[in-house]
């Protein structure tokens, strides 16, 4: 015998849901406005700033004149004039890509080794597990520019400090993603291997690794894109790559050079995105580990 009608049941559930969404909305609004206050986010300044922003965007557009588009580098308004520093920029861009690849591969490798002892289903002593997790948390929370400043102070200006900075930062990020992946892997293969006398290392290698390897690979490709983006700013503090060029162009108001560098960065990011998407799909299907 129901103690209430369906109508009142429906109303009570509905009211609770409404009350909760109201509370959440108010809470989020308060956080939002307080954040706006803290970060000096005022609509009037934004309103005044937006024209500046668009001015800036129009400033960085290159001046191109149709009749002389393909003239040599001394004619104002030609492609060659716009890209007169490409011979310097392209190698720097290559260096940025090289740093990103080197840091991504190495950090994924190290994170793979760190993630198995760091996850809670590999029967590793808790002290090792928690120290690995803390090191990873420290590495990823310290901003990559802070790492870069540190390594530049130690080793001098160049791509190697940039590589180390990016490596440490992405090692931290990758380790977390990796051990979370290991933790949700199925226990069944591990049980089978345990029963046939496989050592702990082999249980990880054959019980867990085949399950997690495709996911690790996916994360590595995604990281490559992120690392490329981040390595474009390493140059700001002397960590090598295109960042130095970009910062000088912005600071010294070489407007047309800002746009050409940004275009190169965007092109590479889109390219990496495209390639990694294709490769990821193929590897997920075909990879044997």
């Amino acid at each position: 015998m129901p103690s209430q009608t369906f109508e009142s049941y429906y109303q009570s559930i509905r009211q609770r849901q409404k009350r909760e969404s109201l509370l959440w909305s108010i809470g989020i609004l308060i956080v939002y406005f307080y954040s706006g206050y803290l970060s000096e986010f005022s609509l009037s300044v934004v309103w005044q700033g937006i024209p500046h922003f668009f001015d800036y965007l129009s400033d960085i557009l290159p001046t191109l004149h149709l009749p002389v588009l393909f003239a040599d580098g001394h004619t104002k308004g030609s492609f060659a004039y716009w890209g007169y520093r490409l011979n310097i920029q392209i190698p720097l861009l290559g260096q940025t890509i090289a740093i990103a690849i080197a840091a991504t591969l190495f950090s994924s490798l190290m994170a793979t080794f760190a993630s198995f002892p760091a996850s809670n289903n590999t029967q590793i002593h808790w002290s090792l597990r928690y120290s690995l997790r803390s090191i990873a948390a420290f590495c990823r929370t310290m901003p990559e520019l802070a790492w870069a400043v540190m390594f530049v102070m130690a080793f001098g200006v160049g791509p190697i400090p940039g590589f180390f900075a990016l490596f440490l930062h992405s090692f931290g990020c990758q380790t977390k993603l990796f051990y979370e992946t290991v933790e949700v892997a199925s226990d069944k293969p591990v049980r089978g291997l345990r029963a046939l006398g496989a050592s702990r290392l082999m249980r990880m290698r054959y019980g867990l690794w085949p399950q997690v390897a495709p996911t690790f690979m996916s994360y590595t490709f995604m990281r490559l894109e992120t690392n490329f983006r981040q390595s474009t700013i390493l140059g700001l503090v002397g960590g090598g790559g295109i960042g130095q060029e970009l910062m000088t162009s912005i600071k010294l108001d070489h407007y047309d050079q800002v746009s050409i560098v940004l275009i190169q960065i965007i092109l590479v990011v889109s390219l990496l995105d495209f390639i990694s998407g294709k490769l990821r799909h193929r590897l997920l299907k075909e990879m044997s580990v």
């Binding site: 199925s186 089978g192 085949p210 399950q211 044997s288």
Partner: peptide
């Protein structure tokens, strides 16, 4: 020594416990 003993005594499970992604 335990692992050696396990290698001498094979075990088969109801749910097979194979490694799915390996051939």
């Amino acid at each position: 020594a335990l692992r050696h003993w396990r290698s001498q005594c094979g075990m088969i499970f109801q749910d097979f416990c194979l490694v799915p992604r390996l051939d």
